[in-house]
């Protein structure tokens, strides 16, 4: 997101400036609280006037988010936040637009809207809260639920294959994809800041716990006790090393990635290195496919590349046509085509 050029108010904003009067109504213990707090923490640091910030959401627990932010906000229709945001951002390119969505809202009913917004590279930031369940409708499986998942609507297990949000976004042409999780305050804040700075759609998947309908869904990955062995913290230019003892790495064996023990004859030079800015998407594809238990889950920015944005292309066309034809006026408009006098 480009920082809009506008004189800043003399008084620096604080976290409290972004807290709305609306009582937060998520279930106690929900992962959403932490995400909200971290966004409210990060926004003052972006130096964007808060009247220029708009949060747009769809339907679902996470989509109540805009009500809790003292910015402009639109709580829209199930799955349609990307479409509402597209209209808003094309109309007002200078605004800082944030989309809050969930795995059901963004990847099921709103899959098409998300796909096309990513393809167009609209300059917005997407926060996809992934809790692998439908919370607001009280516990049905979602497009990211694991196959065989027993829920209210699948008493004998879900027959669906889950969707990988990173691979989805990448194949839609996303220019910024990142992953974080709800209790990783530091990681989340860093990613939010980078997402805000990126020009184009920044797509951030956040592993989020639903303690009512899907408690511990990501526990095997993000629990403090196992976390460092099961996640891969990405840093641009650094080799893929992970583990509590930082003794494991990932290298390529032919075209296949494999986990190796460091020290036992394997050194870091053999490992894959992170290159988040690579214009080639091979590495990002490989990383996006990593999942527990076969591989550690990548956390951080998987890919970040430059491309023009949808709204700037539209602005450019208007500018070019005005240069060519001059600014249109009503007299000329009404007299387009052949005119005669009676």
């Amino acid at each position: 997101m480009n920082i809009p050029v506008k004189p800043l108010s003399s008084v620096a904003l604080t976290k409290a400036d972004f807290v709305s009067k609306q009582t937060v109504r998520w279930c106690p213990g929900c992962g959403d609280y932490s995400i909200l707090a971290n966004i409210q923490k990060v926004l003052p640091e972006l130096n964007i006037p808060k009247e220029d910030i708009v949060f747009v959401s769809g339907i679902g627990c996470s989509s109540r988010f805009p009500y809790y932010m003292d910015t402009y906000g639109m709580h829209t229709l199930h799955g349609r936040a990307p479409a509402f945001a597209t209209g808003l951002k094309v109309a007002r390119p200078e605004l800082s637009v944030w989309i809050v969505t969930g795995d059901g809202d963004g990847l099921s009913i709103g899959g098409n809207q998300l796909l096309h917004m990513l393809r167009r590279n609209l300059d917005v930031n997407v926060l996809l809260f992934n809790n692998r369940i439908y919370g607001l409708t009280k516990g049905q499986y979602s497009p990211t639920s694991e196959q065989g998942k027993v829920t209210k609507s699948t008493p004998f297990g879900s027959p669906d294959m889950p969707l990988n949000p990173m691979l989805f976004a990448l194949s839609a042409g996303a220019t910024f994809i990142a992953r974080t999780f709800d209790v990783d305050t530091k990681g989340m804040q860093e990613i939010f800041k980078e997402a805000a700075k990126h020009k184009g759609t920044s797509f951030v998947e956040i592993y989020q716990n639903c303690n009512i309908f899907n408690d511990g869904t990501f526990a095997a990955v993000k629990d403090r006790s196992v976390r460092e062995d099961r996640i891969l913290r990405l840093k641009h230019g650094e080799p893929f090393v992970f583990g509590k003892e930082q003794n494991k790495g990932i290298r390529l064996n032919g075209l296949k990635p494999e986990i190796v023990e460091l020290g036992s004859g394997v050194n870091e030079n053999e490992l894959l290195k992170h290159d988040q800015f690579s214009s080639d998407s091979t590495l990002a594809n490989l990383l996006s496919g990593f999942d527990y238990p076969e591989f550690p889950v990548p956390m951080g920015i998987l890919r970040q590349v430059e491309n023009s944005t949808y709204e700037e292309k539209i602005e450019q066309q208007i500018k070019t046509q005005i240069e060519l034809k001059g600014v249109g006026n009503l007299t000329n408009l009404l007299r387009g085509g052949q005119v005669w006098t009676n």
Binding site: V56, L77, F84, G87, L88, A91
Partner: peptide
């Protein structure tokens, strides 16, 4: 939806 989004933006 995008039409409504743009109306919120004031066009």
């Amino acid at each position: 939806s995008s039409t409504i989004g743009s109306a919120f933006g004031g066009v």
